[in-house]
Design a protein around this nucleic acid. Structure first.
Lengths: 184, 184
DNA sequence: GTCTATACCGTGATAGAC
DNA sequence: GTCTATCACGGTATAGAC
């Protein structure tokens, strides 16, 4: 009865955790169903049984709830962006890392990344003034993307050695310069 | 005699061009030797014959001469970075795109990307003052990386629709804010 | 010395056995 | 409800054709 379902849920969870870890570390292509199964201590065919295909497993693993990102003025916005960076530096959810890891080489991860970024660009654009708010928002978003990629995925020493506070301190005036059109 | 060598060089060139194109579009994993051979109109095994392995073909395809990046003060530096962005927007060499496309998922591309970025960080760091020049240089470099990735690889609409001049205009004060420590 | 045909191994996927 | 057998495809090595 529920015991069966319970057991199944735990197994599914183990598979998903293993998949997230491997997808985040290796990307979609280099992650094999067999490796996921081994890490989760199940039979490879069981993974297929539960999730249907490698693609579906990936979709389940990278599903990420978009951050709420409440309203505020331009400076609040900058602080929120810097804060999300801090979050990213610490224990950014494995699912986000998995999505980012594959966003340049896997079509679905790319689509997912575009959706998340477009959403953020839209939200950021609403908080800053000026006719070119969308472009400014896009640049602020891609700046955060670049720093995150450099730090989390490429693991550049210069960023790894720095504290989150130092990074925020240096990035803050740059983001503000973009958020305030008159500052040109 | 030379005719043979000539013919061979042309064939090798065709293979390399096809490989660059496919690696840039699809990344390392999704690019198949067979597809490269078909695009270059040769037999798949010939690709192996010439280049040894898919890995070696990739190495040959992504080899990129690092830009000279002459000396100058901090503002000159900002302009050079913005200019290289312009170059990237236009016809950034396929080899660079191929390298960037796979830098998150292929170990050798990652190593190559780290080498290129480290080099640029070092050079940028020499042109700006302050004790945290290295961190500032790293952030400027990753900012350019993020914008390039967003534009060239993720093809975000907001960046695609903008002119290079508009992007440079908005990015300029942000980069200057990072290049000038006193501006905090 | 160039090029082609073929075979082997690992991976995703399917069907069916226990 | 699990696992085994099998297939198709891609990277790779080898042998041999021209």
């Amino acid at each position: 009865m529920t015991e069966r379902a319970e057991r199944r849920r735990r197994t599914e969870r183990r598979i998903l955790d293993a998949a997230r870890q491997l997808f985040a570390d290796l990307g979609f292509e280099r992650t094999t169903i067999r490796a996921v199964a081994k890490a989760a201590e199940v039979d490879p065919a069981l993974v297929m049984q539960y999730f249907g295909s490698k693609q579906d497993l990936f979709s389940a693993a990278v599903t990420v709830a978009p951050a709420p990102m409440a309203q505020g003025d331009a400076d609040d916005l900058v602080e929120r962006l810097l804060g999300s960076l801090g979050l990213k530096m610490g224990e950014l959810p494995q699912s986000s890392l998995a999505m980012m890891r594959s966003m340049l080489t896997h079509p679905e991860a790319a689509a997912s990344a575009r959706a998340v970024l477009s959403r953020q660009i839209h939200q950021v654009g609403e908080s800053i003034p000026g006719g070119d708010a969308r472009l400014r928002a896009a640049l602020m978003t891609t700046i955060m993307l670049g720093v995150t990629v450099g730090h989390q995925l490429l693991e550049l020493d210069e960023l790894r050695e720095a504290s989150q506070a130092d990074i925020a301190r240096i990035l803050r005036p740059a983001l503000r310069a973009i958020a305030h059109p008159q500052a040109e």
